[in-house]
Amino acid sequence: MTFHAFNPSAPPIVEISDLRVAFDATPVLRGIDLTIARGEAVGMVGESGCGKSVTWLAALGLLPKRASISGSVRLDGEELLQASRRHLEQVRGGRIAMVFQDPASALNPVHKVGDQVIEALRLHRGLKGAAARFEALRLFDQVGIPDSARRLGAYPHELSGGQNQRVMIAMALAGQPDVLIADEPTTALDVTIQAQILDLLQQVRRDTGMALVLISHDLGVIGEVCDRALVLYAGQVVEEAPADLLFSRPSHPYTSGLLAALPRIDGPRKNLATIPGIVPHPSELASGCAFAPRCHQRALICSTTEVRLPVGGQQLRHRSACLLHGSTPARPDVALA
């Protein structure tokens, strides 16, 4: 078995620059910058509505026509936002695969799961007949589905939630992708099955050398699986750091609030900390820092000055979009004092 180590100095396989998305002129992504190296595991965290899933749906051309998209998404240096529909269909599932959070709705209920995996093999690798069936069996074995020969003939409703999620991962791996996007892959699964799915993703990443993007609300999952983590809020990245550094020394008040809300298993029992309010609707964003209305550390300047993540990508190990923690205004002519 080949072990593929992540090389942080390797050229990025995915480069997303100033990605912006608006629905009916209402902005929902407000300038996402993200790079992913081959073999790297990157986590994306934040409350619902922060833009985690929309980032990748936009990158892969899966948003409805009413979405207005600008910026740049490059795969191995090749621009995807202006790519033809035919080329995007080759990229989706072939170069970049996505595992959605609800396998019950992602799988077709009237087709056998084996046929759905075989269809992915036909589309992305040209396999047919006995060769496709043999490869489907191998994929089922790889993702840990027991009695794989019999399970190929099962319908989604005949399998458990964890088994259906493994089928989804098998379908994603059918195209031998360079990047796997796992969007809340452990939602609605019990903790034992969650651990098995996460172990599976890590093992596949080590065996194949693919990059992994893990979208999750669970900070513990991100800390266990990922090399680097991005925290999103209101359509922007507000903090980016190696996962261990993010957990030990969070810089942005929003990240600190998320970590403070985690229950502790040691020490005395006490009420969990909460972040007041909710993520604002994209049409109701106030001027200045989007998190300022909920931030207990806010100053007057936070409500009047837009802030951006410092430029530097992975050359800056820890970046935070906070005026009070070393970031810079979006307009360089605005003073901090």
Rank of each mutant, 00 (worst) to 15 (best):
C302L: 10
G223V: 12
L285Q: 03
R228G: 04
L212T: 04
Q297N: 10
E240S: 15
Q315I: 02
A229I: 15
H252C: 06
E306W: 00
M210Q: 08
E306Y: 00
A188H: 10
A260T: 01
L285E: 02
V237E: 01
G257W: 00
R317M: 12
P263M: 07
L272H: 01
R308T: 13
Q196E: 13
G223M: 06
T208L: 14
I215H: 06
L214A: 10
T255M: 09
V213W: 03
L258E: 02
A260Y: 00
P242A: 13
S283A: 15
P280C: 09
A195K: 08
C322L: 11
G257C: 02
T192P: 01
L232C: 06
D207L: 09
P253S: 13
P282N: 12
L309T: 08
V221W: 11
L316G: 02
V225I: 15
C302M: 09
D218L: 05
C295S: 08
Q297Y: 11
V311A: 14
L212I: 01
C302W: 07
I301K: 13
E224L: 11
L300Q: 14
E224T: 07
Q315W: 08
V231D: 08
A299W: 06
T208N: 07
V238D: 10
I197A: 01
L259Y: 05
F247Y: 06
G288E: 06
I215P: 02
P310F: 08
V279E: 01
V191G: 00
C302V: 08
G220H: 07
P280Y: 04
R298C: 08
L258P: 04
L316T: 08
T208E: 10
R269Q: 02
A211M: 08
V238G: 09
L285W: 11
A195W: 13
H296S: 14
N271K: 14
V191H: 03
E284Q: 15
